Computed example of a mutant assay.
Amino acid sequence: MRYIRYAFWAVVGIGLISVAIANRGIVTLHLFPEAISDLLGLNHNISLPLFIVILMSVAVGLLIGFVWEWLREHKFRSEKNRTQKELKNTKREIRRMKGSQKEHKDEVLALLDETG
């Protein structure tokens, strides 16, 4: 199984290296379109190799997906926590009720209940 994992990461690495080599050209990213940047007076831009832009966009997309899924599953996590709290309270109540029943029983029967 370990070799399959190594092979997978080797293929991913080779793929990333080939994307980087094929997309070495420099591109300029602008914060706003030219008409809006002229209107606002903000002309922020940055020049990067294309493969960095591709890889960063994939990383940002994954991050947005993870956050979206985490927010979507919030109701399931809260339901699980509520259910666990109810289960804990129920177990505590059962222990308390068994303890009060032992006070009214014979000592021998109480010991048999504990072992059985």
Rank of each mutant, 00 (worst) to 15 (best):
R2E: 15
F8A: 07
V11H: 00
G13R: 04
G13D: 03
L16Q: 02
V19L: 06
V19F: 00
A22M: 05
N23H: 08
R24Q: 11
G25E: 15
G25R: 13
V27C: 05
T28W: 02
H30I: 04
H30W: 14
L31N: 03
L31V: 04
P33K: 06
P33G: 06
E34H: 08
D38S: 12
L40D: 01
H44P: 03
N45C: 12
I46T: 06
S47Y: 00
P49W: 01
L50I: 06
I52T: 03
I52Y: 06
I52M: 10
I54R: 05
I54E: 01
I54D: 01
L55W: 01
S57W: 05
V58S: 03
A59W: 06
A59N: 05
V60F: 11
V60P: 03
V60G: 07
V60S: 11
L62R: 09
L63A: 10
L63C: 08
V67L: 14
E69W: 10
E69V: 11
E73K: 12
E73G: 10
F76D: 11
R77M: 03
E79Q: 09
K80H: 11
K80I: 13
K80T: 14
N81P: 03
K85F: 06
E86H: 08
L87G: 04
K88L: 15
K88H: 13
N89L: 14
N89A: 15
N89K: 13
K91P: 06
K91F: 12
K91D: 14
K91E: 14
R92G: 10
E93V: 09
I94T: 05
R95S: 13
R96T: 12
M97L: 15
G99C: 04
G99P: 00
S100V: 13
Q101E: 13
K102E: 15
K102W: 08
H104S: 08
H104K: 09
E107R: 13
V108Y: 13
V108Q: 11
V108D: 11
L109F: 07
L109A: 09
A110F: 01
A110C: 03
L111R: 14
L111S: 13
T115K: 11
G116V: 14
G116Y: 13
